[in-house]
Amino acid sequence: MSPSLWLEAWRPALVGCVLCLWLAVPATGNAAPGTRPCGEDHSCASEGADDEARNHSRAEAETDVGDPLRPFNSAMFHLNDKLDLHVLEPTARGWAWLVPPPIRSGILNFYENLLFPIRLVNTALQGRFKDTAIVTGRFVLNSTVGLGGVLDPAARLKLPPRRADFGQTLGRWGTPAGPYLVWPILGSSSVRDTFGLLVDGYLGTVTFFVDTPILLGSAALNAVNQRAMRIKDVDAAREASLDFYVAARDAWQQQRSEDILGVEGARAAREEDLYFFDEELDADEMESSPTEAGSTP
């Protein structure tokens, strides 16, 4: 994704921040080092009870990330919101008016294709070798038959994109997320994932030997182009939320939980707390207010 490209310019400042935070913040998770990463499509939870327990503790480290930096995060979030409202969205509207959809999706595909080095390295580091193969196949096919990545013939061959980033790699190997962080422009992250972003930013840019000004322009183009595809969605999400900041944070945390624990792992991790948060309370309710829900039609 484009944010990683932005990092070229930010790197020195960010590294400083990250190192400070990283050192200052005691590790919150109790994930065992050397936890085996799980494959994208496989159930992490099926690796035995021991692993399952470990997954749960990892899940806690993952999903119950506190928000000790909330004042800062909230300020950044609202800054981003304003930037979006006054800069990004108007630009994206203009862009959407100007550029026909096929060209926009071509641009989207092109940038997606450029993520290849990041995904190659990270799927391999996570031991997701099948995904490594898929990612490589996609890049080769889309770069050639797909005219430099503008088209996505691989998707038609049932080879959809595979997400992978270095924050995820760290998470799968047991690194706790650390506090939630919102960066200007880049948006939601965590201490761990910010570090991951730096590594990915390096991977993503150094591979293609491009100058910083070009990178920045290119990242801006990518951002505007992506935003143009989401014009109504952001408004809708905002309107649908009672507290937009918390809604965005929770969505991000759920997404990361899935990235790191796998679909099955994330599912198992949230199961009890989410759907049976208080069994006794449930029972009480059943007694005292029988089937209010099942109103007779």
């Binding site: 994704m1 944010p3 981003n80 948006g187 939601s188 992506q226 935003r227 989401r230 969605d233 952001v234 809708a236 999400a237 649908a240 809604a247 965005a248 969505a251 991000w252 997404q255």
Partner: peptide, 14 residues
Amino acid sequence: MKIALLSRLLGVLL
């Protein structure tokens, strides 16, 4: 990234 997530959420709502 954030935006993409939110739009997914939107989908849920729909």
